[in-house]
Design a protein around this nucleic acid. Structure first.
Lengths: 207, 207, 207, 207
DNA sequence: TATGAATGAGTATTCATTCAT
DNA sequence: TATGAATGAATACTCATTCAT
């Protein structure tokens, strides 16, 4: 048992260190942006040598991927929390969509991260099919409450899926616009447009 | 006349070479993506030494900017062409929005290019305020037909601007989804969703 | 004769252009210093293409050499002027030494230029033996009034030559010290030290 | 102890490698001169990739600065050694001045190095005020024995400082002359002139 | 598990010079 | 005489990654 316990403790310590590195990476990302988040910079922020990170992650891309993974986890938690507080299908739909929007509105670097790695999916090899499939899965699961609520409202599966895609698209489009400052061209506020969009969708489903 | 003609011919040749370099840059962009489009790579594709490009462009960023500029020009031409063929405000609105969408649907690298340089606007200094302001201007002008058509339909200025922003956002969001292959998650087609979105907007304005 | 006259005029024009380029080079040197005085920069200041300068000078080094040559000419003129105003051997000696010092005190870039090309003399090939010998000759001629005055005061040739070398060395040493700001370490003024040095030399010769 | 020993040995090895790079840099400096001493060239001479040097030095300028630092250290040691062997104030003054001269007479590249980095002090920002101030400090400390000896001889502080500056100036002036071969113009020997200069100064102080 | 050292490929840009026109 | 275009070599420096210790 003591040996076993030692092993378990070692694993826990290892897990902790991994997380400390990821936290450091997040900080670098937030402060320096995509371009500045080199492995060197992350290692330094974490108090490590670049070489040391390779004991915890296979490559820089793997580290990034894990960062995105955690980001998506946080996103899902955020959406789920909002949904759980709602008490009607309509409200669940609205809250899920708005929680999604707000999550990225508040931490724009997470959006950058998503764009960066999502784009990777286009390349022939991508980040590996497994990783790509996993990202898709996470995304689908996160947005699922929207489809669920729609179905509760009597909508067909097909239509529910469209709603998910539309909501995702509108939110990310508006966030992009807001995030790059371009939205000022139109003299409007992204959050307000998002609310309107969601209300319109609901109106259409329930009319 | 011979002297003049010589000068004129020289200018034309120079202009042509410039364009050949830009074409090479486009190809590199298409094949290698954002990261791979180094000055070296562009020069090689164009059959030049890196140093030679500096005779034609002030810097790598200047070359990129010109690439984007031409892309936006083509976008505007595409939208204008679609609008000119339409014969009613409703049709003009629809065709403008769909032309915008189709342009980027067909040449996804132009979307990347836009994202790349648009993002520059976020940095404190940006690529220079002038360039940033110019990008905004071009975008506003390109989407203007949408607002014009809406106003013809009796909509307030305020609402027309919202419509522009919403259309831009929805289109880019869907394109991002399509472009990265994520849209498959939802089992829907981006183009169809865009058409539906536009139709919904029109229905709302005209009901 | 018209042909001849045309040739002469052509030569004069050519000479003038050469000089305009050299003037431009001086300005660049003064404003940008040694490092900044690239051929490109000089050409631009002169209103030419870099390539055009090659019709007027064999190489960048040749242009620099000519610049130094003119600088030494101006130095000699400055010394000669001072000497011609003096009315005794002692005064000639003093004025020659001080004029030399003041020339470089006032235009430190000329000193830089001298250092730069003088140093070239060390390299195996140098700027070519001819050029090197010419520089030596110019320097000797410029300082000759010091030796002449010393001889007038009854000093041996040998001693007179020592005096020239010492004066040159002390002046350039002080100028270097002044020019790099190091003289502040000692809390003294270069010009005053130079005056003292000259007075000491004179005292020794005449005592 | 073994662990400690390992660390200590590692540090020693590291220090050694650093020094080997500096030695390589010195050689390049001696053979190729200022302009040729690029980071590439130094790395090659040391048997390294350019990138490897960045592990040992922060930048090319930092490497240069360390080279100069070691040179000044050697200079000071040389002067101190000479002074410690002298047994009277007059002798200390003479030996300090001549040791300074001889140091640079024997290794002219050290003089070049000094000129190169000293000149940095002229530029608005310099190599950083710290570095500049440090250079000044080292120089002052090195020449201090001259001032000390003069004060022992009953000279005022003010006059002692002048003597330091004059000695430095005369020595560097003569060295420049000798070093570039110009001194041949005057048919005299730099070392002899330096001895005479020092003797004259001593005569003046003690008469 | 972590480090120090090293690599090799890469970055944009500058330079003096050449040559056809 | 002058230009526009092009070259080839050079610059310092950064990057992700590897490996012996």
């Amino acid at each position: 048992m003591p040996a076993e316990g030692g092993t378990r403790r070692k694993k826990a310590v290892s897990e902790l260190k991994r997380q400390l590195i990821l936290d450091a990476a997040r900080r670098v990302f937030e402060n320096e942006g995509l371009e500045g988040a080199s492995l060197r910079a992350i290692a330094q922020e974490a108090g490590y040598t670049p070489a040391a990170l390779y004991f915890h992650f296979d490559s820089r891309e793997a580290l990034y991927a894990e960062l995105l993974s955690q980001s998506l986890e946080a996103l899902k938690a955020s959406v789920d929390r909002a949904v759980s507080k709602a008490d009607s299908p309509v409200d669940r739909l609205r809250q899920a969509a708005l929680a999604f929007f707000r999550f990225y509105e508040r931490s724009p670097r997470d959006l950058d991260l998503g764009f960066y790695l999502f784009r990777g999916g286009m390349t022939p090899e991508g980040l590996g099919r497994d990783r790509d499939a996993e990202l898709n899965q996470r995304l689908a699961v996160t947005l699922q409450p929207i489809a669920d609520a729609a179905i509760e409202l009597g909508v067909e599966m097909d239509q529910a899926r469209r709603l998910m895609a539309d909501t995702f698209a509108h939110a990310t489009g508006l966030l992009l616009l807001a995030h790059t400052g371009r939205i000022r061209i139109f003299g409007v506020a992204a959050a307000e447009l998002m609310r309107n969009f969601v209300d319109d969708q609901i109106a259409r489903l329930t009319e």
